[in-house]
Design a protein around this nucleic acid. Sequence first.
DNA 1: AACATTGTTCCATCTTTCGCACTGTTGTGC
DNA 2: GCACAACAGTGCGAAAGATGGAACAATGTT
Lengths: 293, 293
Amino acid sequence: MSVNSIKPRKSSDRSKHELPSEKSDKPANEQIKKKQVGGVVRAIRLLDLLVSEGPLRFAEIEDRSGLPKATLHRMLNDLIDERFVIFDERALSYNAGYRILEMANRVWTRSDIRMLARDQLLALSALTGETVQIAVHADTHVVVIDHVESTQSVRLSISVGNKSPVYCSGTGKVMLAWCDAQRQESIISRISFARYTPNTVTSLPELHKDLALISKRGYALDLEESFIGTNSIAAPIVDHGGQAIAGISITAPTFRVGVDELVQWKESLIAAAAEVSRRLAPRAGGSMDSSIN
Amino acid sequence: MSVNSIKPRKSSDRSKHELPSEKSDKPANEQIKKKQVGGVVRAIRLLDLLVSEGPLRFAEIEDRSGLPKATLHRMLNDLIDERFVIFDERALSYNAGYRILEMANRVWTRSDIRMLARDQLLALSALTGETVQIAVHADTHVVVIDHVESTQSVRLSISVGNKSPVYCSGTGKVMLAWCDAQRQESIISRISFARYTPNTVTSLPELHKDLALISKRGYALDLEESFIGTNSIAAPIVDHGGQAIAGISITAPTFRVGVDELVQWKESLIAAAAEVSRRLAPRAGGSMDSSIN
DNA sequence: AACATTGTTCCATCTTTCGCACTGTTGTGC
DNA sequence: GCACAACAGTGCGAAAGATGGAACAATGTT
């Protein structure tokens, strides 16, 4: 039972922050030697379960998490005490609590990169009249941390916190392109491709070709690769060593904005992203170590 | 060292979810020697520390959390692995990670009470042209979970996730007023009053008097009690037994909307809140307590 | 009343914990 | 440049405490 189990581990394989999470979607050769995790990590996985799958009853949680009853009870009670989990006494169901929103609110309002980028987003939005977003890198995905939507647009208003795979979003591809080879390879090797639209990049050769083009041009295009009817253009925000840590994108519906028009905004977009990069490096010397870019 | 320390506890006082957190903002007479907490809770407190106080270096975290070095390292690494914490290799500082935003996004989009209330918020906003919010109860505070701002203000709104004390917000007072006596007493006893404006309720007699009026009227007024220049009116969303679990409020600047005008919206507001209450109880019998349901 | 499910208690085991001692790195003052 | 201090991070091991299987109690449900 419980394919994606959450069992304890020997506290030995303390790897070097190599992002061992990213629960693989492939329940292939399950030697049951699943990475044993400690109490804290188990609690987080548990929370994730509740956040993802609506309210769950105890038996369901027990089943899906694979945690033993007694432990699960203790953990849930801890999370309830901290308001990370809500217990519905009538339905006897557990659900994610609103303390998460509180924390997110603080993270959001205090995010320095977001604050540094805000005026640039507003300027781009005013210039283009389209939706502008900033997203940060998160392993094999990118997470939107702010967005400005101009005039009454009807689309996904709540994109903050949205996560997309690196290979099918403008910001994601930009993030890959401005990445040292080793790190890029590490990320790419952990991608599991899925086709969202006919245009989605779903193979390594395609992706590598695209990345080469992107880093040559200085910006990335996403032409209906994640959503039909939506194009976007993205540019990187880089750190001291030229590594992308975030990206800014302009998103527009295909019926309103053609590719040519989108590309016309590239200078402004790149300039905005560069400006944010510059602000992020109050202490940067200039170029670093070996290579100069 | 470490006033607000986070040390382990004997796993015995498993109280009945009595919300023992609520770190008071006043580090005053703290002889309440920290209740000993388990690993999971300690990790949450640690996360809270990072979320609240920007990026911190190791020594600072050690100091402020009171956790021993080795333990702290393990915990931080676990949180980093799960992307709840970001480690800045250049500055050697730890900060809250964006995984929190991802989770919050899911919590937000999947919140059923929010979804049930959305159209009512929109209707109220259209009617009044002012900001409308819905907030849920959170011990001695209330947390905003959604809002609609009539004038084109876009963003995920700084207000979602915002926390206010129960005694100085319309929704908060409403939450207290529709509460059984025992629970009300429990909450009130844990309030630590602070004066935000000259109008803030800062004593129990005042509060009780206000609450009596509120439950008689069916709505609560907040007349510049938390912010100068801002009034609001709020009505309760109640569960099966008449307990408030959330509140809807209309907020307006004093210069634009007088109290009389605000009160004129009470019928619409109360009706909207009642409608949401009704939707929340697909299974509710009718009257409350023991008898026939 | 029999049943199903949630929740609690017990306790032998095994992991985590955490003080301490140690290494490596960064920066400060002379 | 040097020594020195401050800090980040790791390894060790005895003690503390979490873990989890199972039996038990307390709920609803049929």
